[in-house]
Design a binder for these strands. Structure first.
Length: 418
DNA sequence: TCTGGGGTCCTGCCTCGT
DNA sequence: TCTGACGAGGCAGGACCC
């Protein structure tokens, strides 16, 4: 296993005992903040908060300098600023993060074809089949860390283990800029004293339910009866936790991932009571969802909406369509129908539209708009008009595909003004 | 002192068909 | 024709992840 190197890091040697390991979990350190520093070196060493400075934003990512003040992702920006008033707020640049992510993933793929990206900044790698080419898993982990730093200019942390779960836990412990190797023989010892909350899949609620029964460590899980575990967290999670606690994790590295749903949601700057505005917003969200469906050549079998009210209470409503669709108008109208069925009429904080039960497109892409590009042009024009004249009206200019021409284009910023 | 956005998975309840 | 059991699928809500 690893040792502290005096800088708060854990770094296993590349010749550490990695017997029985094959899985690497690579996690970029404070990824968004690291990319911002890469693009603007004057930010290096500063406490950075990646997020929008407006009222309802939360922190997307924070540099380690900001984390020292207790700032963490998902914290409201206002709260983060109270904790760290000297922090620099940087607006996120998601396209740029995607770009850097692709560079990093390409490095992973130059070592093994078995790469499973989990998100923009982390991935599992199975290196069992490439040991002859590159050496042991620990050595490969060291090479990857070097190349990511040399070629991209940012640091990452790596966990090396026999299973995904242990590799993931190891990389978390190794952060930042570290590496932790857990040999197969060391796995049970490694897990034993870790808190249940450190397990992947155990959040605050599950941890609370387990701790209420005196189950605090992974060793406690191992020693608990299946009945007690099931009472605490239900049948599915209890079975999984028991397995993981024994160091068993049958999941393999999957290079293919099929999307199961596509959605968009938006929190408003202030709570909205205006039903017409909310209906227009649902149409707009439905259109964005439909555009993504068509690009992916999917159709939605089910449309669901999410409505969060001013008291943060959230309702979901869903409806199976009579036939699957990727038409913006159809999805938007289904969303509007679901919305009208909600009796509560309080101010709305957030609206979301999601396409579920996806299936391959059969009838080709038909929609209110060709793609997002069209909509962006409309949004841009409306924004400009509202900025210049304080008002805007837009009319439907063309029909696309088999559309019947109903549903003039509506834009939330255009609603209610003429 | 407020709580984003994009997802996945699980659970419980209900309805419907057999 | 009626009734109960059962499984499948739809729906709503919630926990969790990054």
């Amino acid at each position: 296993m690893g040792h502290g190197d005096g800088r708060g890091q854990i770094t296993s040697a590349t010749d550490a005992d990695d017997t029985g390991t094959r899985i690497l979990h690579v996690d970029m350190d404070a990824f968004y903040a690291a990319v911002e520093v890469l693009d603007d070196p004057s930010l290096r060493g500063l406490p950075l908060i990646i997020g929008a400075p407006d009222g309802r934003s939360v922190v997307s990512s924070a540099s380690y300098e900001a984390r020292r003040y207790g700032v963490h992702a998902a914290m409201p920006v206002a709260q983060a600023l109270r904790l760290c008033p000297s922090a620099r707020i940087v607006l996120p640049h998601f396209h740029r993060y995607q770009e850097v992510s692709r560079q990093v993933m390409a490095i992973f793929e130059s070592f093994t074809p078995l790469v499973e990206p989990l998100s923009v900044d982390e991935a599992f790698l199975d290196v069992q089949g490439v040991r002859r080419l590159w050496g042991s898993p620990a050595r490969i982990a060291g090479l990857i860390r070097e190349r990511v730093l040399d070629e991209v200019g940012i640091t990452c942390s790596v966990g090396v283990a026999a299973t995904k779960h242990v590799a993931k836990m190891a990389s978390t412990i190794a952060k930042p800029d570290g590496m932790l190797v857990v040999s197969a023989a060391d796995t049970l010892d490694f897990l034993a004293s870790r808190p249940v909350r450190a397990m992947w899949g155990v959040g605050p609620k599950a941890a609370e339910a387990l701790e209420a029964r005196g189950i605090r460590t992974i060793k406690d899980i191992r020693e608990s009866s299946p009945e007690m575990l099931e009472r605490a967290v239900g049948p599915a999670l209890s079975g999984r936790l028991a397995q993981l606690a024994r160091g068993e994790d049958p999941r393999t590295v999957e290079t293919e991932r099929i999307e199961k749903s596509i959605g968009h949601e938006e929190t408003f700057d202030h709570d909205i009571l205006d039903r017409a505005f909310l209906r227009a917003e649902l149409l707009r969200l439905g259109d964005r969802v439909a555009a993504r469906l068509r690009r992916a050549e999917w159709e939605a079998g089910t449309v669901s909406i999410k409505v969060r009210f001013d008291d943060f209470r959230t309702l979901n409503r869903s409806q199976t369509l009579s036939e699957p669709s990727a038409v913006g108008q159809r999805i938007g109208e289904a969303a509007q129908t679901l919305f009208e069925q909600i009796e509560r009429r309080d101010p709305v904080r957030l609206l979301g539209v999601r396409a579920e039960n996806l299936r391959p497109a059969g009838g080709g892409g038909l929609g209110l708009w060709d793609d997002d590009e069209d909509w962006r042009k409309v949004e841009g024009a409306v924004d400009e008009a509202v900025a210049r004249f304080g008002t805007a009206t837009i009319s439907r200019a063309r029909h696309i595909g088999r559309g019947d021409g109903r549903g003039a284009a509506q834009h939330p910023k255009a609603h209610g003004v003429d």
